[in-house]
């Protein structure tokens, strides 16, 4: 229960850290969208309900703090989460190269979807963003994702261990 109560502030902190701290590492050249990797990880490793909640919350916070179109990231993150959930049943999701490839593809798909939705809903043309922003971002996140998956897994194990401790004592 505590895990679910802690989840929103933790995810909010992640998004804040992502838009303030992590962008520094790439000097603003390309966005470090760690939240997207969390969504993909949720699709690969979590059940539908907690994974869906995490994706929805992350999308919501991203919409609140970065997006000009409210609901854009909620929709995209849910889409990517279900895509990852589906992919996890089809591929061996522990192989680093597959994780990197899938993350790269999802980042590109997210970029394409944003370009498409901008054109459909706002009539704006941001096609230039694909080579300038989304392809570098896909490469960067793809390369980082196996390491990030490992970190998330460690964090998940830590959370479970803390939850199990009272039961073991009984």
């Amino acid at each position: 229960m505590i895990r679910y109560l802690l989840l929103p502030p933790l995810l909010l902190l992640l998004v804040i850290a992502q838009i303030t701290l992590l962008d520094l590492f790439t000097l603003g050249w390309v966005g470090m969208e760690i939240s997207l990797v969390v969504v993909i990880y949720s699709g690969f490793h979590l059940d539908t309900f907690p994974g869906g909640i995490i994706s929805l919350l992350l999308g919501f916070f991203m919409d609140c703090l970065t997006s000009t179109m409210f609901g854009l990231y909620m929709f995209l993150y849910l889409l990517i989460f279900y895509l990852s959930l589906f992919a996890a049943r089809m591929i061996y999701s522990e192989k680093p190269s597959l994780i990197a490839l899938f993350t790269g593809i999802c980042t590109l798909l997210e970029g394409l979807a944003i370009v498409l939705l901008y054109r459909l809903l706002l009539g704006g043309d941001i096609l230039y963003a694909i080579p300038k922003i989304f392809i570098p971002k896909a490469i960067l996140l793809g390369l980082l994702s196996p390491f990030l998956f490992h970190l998330f897994h460690r964090f998940e194990v830590l959370l479970h261990a803390k939850e199990l401790q009272p039961a073991q004592r009984v």
Partner: peptide, 18 residues
Amino acid sequence: TAAIVLLLVSLSILAYSA
């Protein structure tokens, strides 16, 4: 069904906010 419903709802929110 939950996935489809959630996606439709979020898409509606997106369209509404746009």
